[in-house]
């Protein structure tokens, strides 16, 4: 089935790097790309049970006369036939509505803050809200264009991490790239417990066929073990996993990963309806 990725284009060098990441993602997953070049600093996304207003950093509106040409040049050069989204629905005259029926969305770590604030350990509030509400996973790109040659899924046994494994397998099927799993053993959990969860989710057969390596760490701290994440891997992980505060916080593991890893992150929120 054809998949679609939404990219909000920023006509700056940082925006070019982000667009290159999207292009690479679309090429390798054979997804089609929908580019939105904003004309206003805010837009609305109406999800199933929430409406998110995204207030963009003003740099998204820079140099509008060259935005489309720049985006077209890059996409054409990489063989992507991107379509440009023109808003038709407006909640208010300066407040367009962006559809949410995409399969992926690409975003830098923050879209509301100045680009100088974008750094490891900082994910903007709007991006967090989109991840929390969206039914699609969000591709958080590394600051510079970086190709990925394998997929690594963080699997801690939670419902969302099972969804992440499912997504990882789906992308591995689409791209033919090898898939690795990363598990930090916690408390009294054993490997059998983790395997059982995958079995219960019906992923056992696909897992045996596609997973190249299951990196299991029982020693050392989680942060220290993140050094073993391959440099050129797309990291797939779930957010808002556990406990009473799951609606407010990403989850401690997720916060550590986004503070330490500079890889491209494909984040699965709680409302993501898993594919594959």
């Amino acid at each position: 089935m054809e998949t679609k990725l939404l990219h909000i284009f920023r006509n700056t060098p940082l925006g070019r790097e982000t667009l290159l990441q999207s292009i690479y993602f679309c090429n390798i997953t054979r997804s089609s790309m929908v580019i939105y070049i904003p004309e206003y600093t805010k837009f609305l996304m109406y999800f199933d049970n929430d409406v998110v207003q995204v207030d963009l950093d003003p740099s998204y509106l820079l140099y509008p006369e060259t935005s489309r040409t720049h985006a077209l040049d890059l996409t054409k050069a990489h063989g992507i036939d991107a379509s440009f989204f023109e808003p038709r629905q407006f909640t208010a005259s300066t407040l367009p509505d962006i559809p949410v029926d995409f399969d992926f969305m690409c975003s830098p770590r923050s879209i509301s803050d100045l680009s100088s604030k974008i750094s490891l350990g900082h994910i903007g509030t709007r991006v967090r809200r989109i991840i929390k509400t969206a039914q699609f996973p969000v591709l958080l790109t590394s600051p510079c264009y970086k190709e990925w040659t394998s997929i690594l899924v963080f699997f801690g046994g939670s419902v969302n991490s099972v969804k992440a494994v499912r997504l990882g397998l789906h992308i591995s099927r689409l791209t033919g790239l090898p898939l690795d799993l990363f598990t930090q053993v916690e408390g009294s959990q054993t490997m059998d417990d983790y395997k059982d969860r995958l079995k219960q989710a019906g992923l056992e057969a696909d897992f045996d066929k596609r997973v190249r390596d299951w990196k299991v760490f029982a020693d050392n701290g989680f942060e220290e073990n993140l050094y073993h994440v391959p440099h050129q891997a797309l990291a797939v992980l779930g957010a808002y996993g556990h406990g009473l505060v799951k609606d407010i916080l990403f989850g401690s593991k997720m916060e550590v990963i986004q503070s330490v890893l500079s890889n491209n992150l494909l984040i699965v929120g709680p409302r993501y309806s898993a594919k594959g």
């Binding site: 109406y46 207003q53 909640t91 208010a92 005259s93 407040l95």
Partner: peptide, 19 residues
């Protein structure tokens, strides 16, 4: 609050009508 000006009621009707 980053909102556009307006009368409010069209926005409510729009929300009911579309979303």
């Amino acid at each position: 609050v980053n909102e556009g000006a307006g009368h409010g009621i069209p926005e409510v009707i729009y929300a009911v009508s579309r979303y």
